[in-house]
Design a protein around this nucleic acid. Structure first.
Lengths: 334, 334
DNA sequence: ATGACGAATGGAAAGGTTTTCACATTGCAA
DNA sequence: TTGCAATGTGAAAACCTTTCCATTCGTCAT
């Protein structure tokens, strides 16, 4: 049915070994022979069977991407970046939408059946004693929130720095009554951002004020954010500026402000994180830290490629640069 | 390194053929032997090499999902559905984020190198003469907007019906001045929805009124939708109800109405399509047709499985059911 | 008692590569 | 002229399965 090395060898009048060499661009073959083989390949429409190749070479050209939830925009964007580089390097992308325990099962099965040579894990759960073990059999790169104490190679943004810069920016605008909406425990990035945020405020002598803070554990749930923001902004001693864990929460805050007759940014500055494409649906547009998800995906794929080809790689954590995109929701304190 | 059938055979004191039979649950092996083999498998931690298996059986257990843009929520949701079923059937998911010409190249390469046995194409471009050719070498299922005239097996919603029901719903609320925001040409679904919408209106004697219609070619771009909606709603003879191609456009219309002091739904009913999770970011919440993307993905995977295992499949088009989710943005005509 | 049959199992081929090793040819220096 | 290295090529093994075919053995009907 499909042409094989044997067919090509017969057609070109050479041995299968020579055909293989030509297909792999071996230098140890004469120009004339190579040309004849190539002609035969062309004529027969021969394409090497990847399965057989992988079996023989005992390696795989596919890599696994493990995603907790592909419908979350940040993951999808990262995936797009990974895909871009994978295509460039000639890898095939295996993807799996799995969470928790299932991640471990799938990953182990992939490693055992030798279905893939490497994997990129988006936002793997905390407390993963099993990761180093998997990493010994399979090249692994993490691409997600930074998990402190985890020594795996990872790509992430510096959430602590985002928090610090958020505080810095609002302080520079003259704000002193600065609030926070977001979680403090649900995930590592939330924790880090809040830590950085509070430590910068503390440097200017501003200590956490419970009346200015609203915690919501579901940091990306609009309705919950709306409820919490309403509560926070209804107080007589409401903050003059709010740093929000996500754009979703920031949008909720802006909407609430509009409903309560609080002018943004004159009476209230709102700062978010994400640069969500949907952020434009609320007016005024939300000032926000953008996260380079596509770039993170590309970097992760590059690192994995280096790791798999045995080249030198940076150890530990690789940081992707965020950027403050100033829009309409922030302004100087009155 | 890794245990093979030979190791297991030696350990269990049987032949490799028997080991293979046990691994494949063949009935032609005695219980005692099977037990011995299983014990050896357990002891050695043997896992069959998928590559070798695929090579021998000349088939693949992986299927390709081709996506134009994984960052679009509807595609991501479909992908999640596909993933769910693929896991259930034991398929490995290959994914590729490609558009236009690149789709054809990737698809052909996949078929030629026998990397996968089947593929699900999300929203493949129009005018694809090459599809039947690929389908003859690779099982194909389309999962996307319905392309009329294309005889491939496909899963899609009935966009014409959505259009009809939209008109029907607004007419039943007593509306007569009914507008439309969306594209008429950019994609098949936009065309179909508009056709169904207009034909239903026509049945009640309402003919298209250019003053009530706003066309925007980028049917999912908020800013453009905002501009267009503003233009449409600023007219003195503005419509009393609007059917929007997408929730994004509907949200823009609702926002514009709010800014212009037009009360929704008292003075203006707005109806969208999608049931976007972000639809909740605008008040009042938008009434909308939900599309079962996850379910579509699952159905597509099921159909592909049936097709690949040579079972009988429905021919042509499979329709997934949409549903009208009534929220706050629609109400009776004054 | 014999033949036929079915069940359980093993031997060996096949699937399409890559790669090692060996062989033959050439060119070049001694 | 001889020896040797470099170069180009082919034969065959190896990668790990599945599966066809053959063999053995026990059972049952004649």
């Amino acid at each position: 049915m499909m042409a094989t090395v044997f067919d090509v060898a017969k057609e070109a009048g050479v041995s299968i070994a020579t055909v293989s060499r030509v297909m792999n661009n071996s230098p140890r073959v004469s120009a004339a022979t190579a040309e004849a083989v190539r002609a035969a390949v062309e004529k027969l429409g021969y394409v090497p069977n990847q399965q057989a190749r992988n079996l023989r070479k005992n390696e795989s050209n596919s890599i696994l991407v493990m995603i907790p939830d592909v419908t979350k925009l940040s993951y999808a964007r990262t995936l797009a970046g990974i895909n871009e580089k994978a295509l460039e390097y000639g890898y095939t992308l295996l993807m799996n939408n799995a969470v928790g325990e299932e991640q471990e099962i799938v990953l182990n099965r992939m490693a055992e059946t030798q279905r893939c040579a490497g994997a990129i894990l988006l936002n793997v759960m905390l407390g993963d004693e099993w990761l180093p073990d998997v990493d010994s059999r399979l090249s692994l790169v993490l691409c997600s929130e930074y998990v402190s104490g985890c020594n795996m190679l990872s790509v992430s943004v510096d959430d602590r720095k985002i928090g610090r810069e958020a505080a810095d920016y609002l302080l520079k605008l003259g704000h002193r009554r600065i609030g926070y909406i977001g979680s403090c425990v649900s995930c590592s990035s939330a924790f880090e951002r809040r830590e950085g945020f509070l430590s910068r405020l503390s440097e200017d002598g501003i200590e956490p004020d419970v009346r200015l803070v609203a915690y919501t554990d579901v940091s990306t749930n609009y309705r919950e954010g709306y409820r919490v923001a309403r509560e926070l902004l209804s107080r007589p001693d409401r903050p003059g500026a709010i740093f929000c864990y996500s754009d979703i929460l920031a949008m909720a805050a802006v909407t609430v402000a509009g409903e309560l007759g609080i002018r943004v940014p004159e009476q209230l500055s709102v700062l978010g994180v994400d640069n969500n494409v949907y952020a434009e649906m609320v007016h005024p547009y939300v000032t926000s830290f953008s996260q380079p998800f596509e770039e993170m995906g590309r970097r992760a794929m590059e690192l994995l490629h280096l790791k798999m080809t045995g080249q030198t790689i940076p150890t530990g954590r690789v940081i992707a640069e965020h950027e403050l995109k100033i829009q309409e929701s922030t302004g100087p304190a009155l």
